[in-house]
């Protein structure tokens, strides 16, 4: 196991190697892969989720592994069908949120001056207005469906990313390579897309993951309130119907427990992947890890110490 960051391999292969080397990232990647597989091929294996297959609210049995809902549908089939829709919305929104945030953040940070003041005010206002009530008010006025849901989640979710990207852009702008590009006469657009944004790849990737976690959670919450299209099957509407059919007061735990576990597992997997990436891309954590490995090699117990003498050993 080498402790130096791999520089020989680039792109996808490098990430693949990095994921495999970090335990957290590996766990996260496996969880995520399972869910993507379920979302991809699962719906063909479990049958029609809308079909009324048995007596309502039956506990798990061999014929219905996760029991039946209050309407007599198969819980497992609904869970699998919901996985596809919920993950699609989650990743779609996660990507869009980061795109919007990066666009606003880079514009504000690079142009500076009045544009910056105005855009900063805008995202700071959006940050401080509570998201869920705003999302509810907007969603209530639009026709219910995945597009509305996605739109609402982007509106309430972009501000944080914009703020982080702006701060990062400000830091990068002062550096020599940007100054060199300006002197070389490159256009602002080129400087932003070719010089500044590439330095933030790992940050943006982390943001996509974080935003996807947010999007899945918020989406489930809004649908639980009945603001989604309650006739499409998603994780959120499953929980909505479970609450509506008073699953809790009849003890039908199987109608809500599996869905929540899935939401949490996906969220946990993504978070693990993210902290794994952080450990890979954050130079300080890298140094610390190398230092600990170094100490262990010499039979010493790693304690709190600063790895300033790394190269001596």
């Amino acid at each position: 196991m080498s402790s130096t960051p791999s520089t020989a391999v680039t792109g996808f292969a490098a990430w693949w190697q990095a994921i495999r080397r970090d335990r957290k990232a590996t766990i996260g990647a496996i969880i995520l892969a399972v869910f993507l597989l379920v979302a991809g091929v699962g719906p063909w294996l479990v049958g029609d989720p809308d079909a009324l297959v048995g007596i309502p609210l039956q506990p798990p049995s061999t014929s219905h592994w996760l029991g039946t809902t209050g309407q007599g549908q198969d819980v497992l089939a609904q869970l699998v069908a919901g996985t596809r829709v919920s993950l699609a919305i989650g990743f779609g929104v996660g990507l869009t949120v980061v795109l919007v945030g990066a666009l606003v953040g880079v514009t504000a940070g690079y142009l500076g001056g009045r544009v910056d003041a105005l855009l900063s005010l805008l995202f700071n206002v959006f940050l401080v207005i509570p998201g869920l009530p705003l999302a509810i008010v907007i969603a209530a006025y639009l026709p219910s469906g995945p597009l509305t849901l996605g739109f609402v989640l982007v509106v309430t979710g972009w501000a944080w990313n914009a703020r982080v990207v702006r701060a990062q852009t400000l830091a990068q702008r002062k550096r020599d390579f940007v100054a060199a590009a300006v002197v070389a006469g490159e256009s602002s657009f080129r400087i932003v897309t070719r010089e500044i944004l590439p330095t933030m790849t790992s940050l943006l990737l982390a943001q996509v993951i974080g935003s996807t976690v947010y999007a899945i959670g918020a989406q489930v919450g809004l649908e639980f309130l009945g603001l989604g299209d309650v006739s499409t099957i998603t994780w959120g509407t499953n929980l909505y119907w479970a609450q509506n059919d008073s699953a809790l007061l009849t003890g039908a735990w199987w109608t809500f427990a599996p869905t929540g576990l899935c939401v949490a597992l996906v969220g946990f997997g993504l978070t693990m992947l993210n902290s794994g990436f952080d450990e890979i891309t954050n130079p300080r954590l890298q140094l610390e890890r190398a230092w600990r490995a170094h100490l262990r090699l010499r039979g010493e117990e790693p304690t709190r110490s600063t790895p300033v003498v790394m190269d001596v050993g």
Partner: peptide, 23 residues
């Protein structure tokens, strides 16, 4: 707690209500 934080609040609430209230 990072794992617990991944659950939707209201789902944790449902489980808590089911276990400590109902059962």
């Amino acid at each position: 707690f990072v794992f617990l934080g991944a659950f939707p609040y209201f789902w944790l609430a449902m489980v808590a209500l089911y276990v400590f209230g109902f059962l």
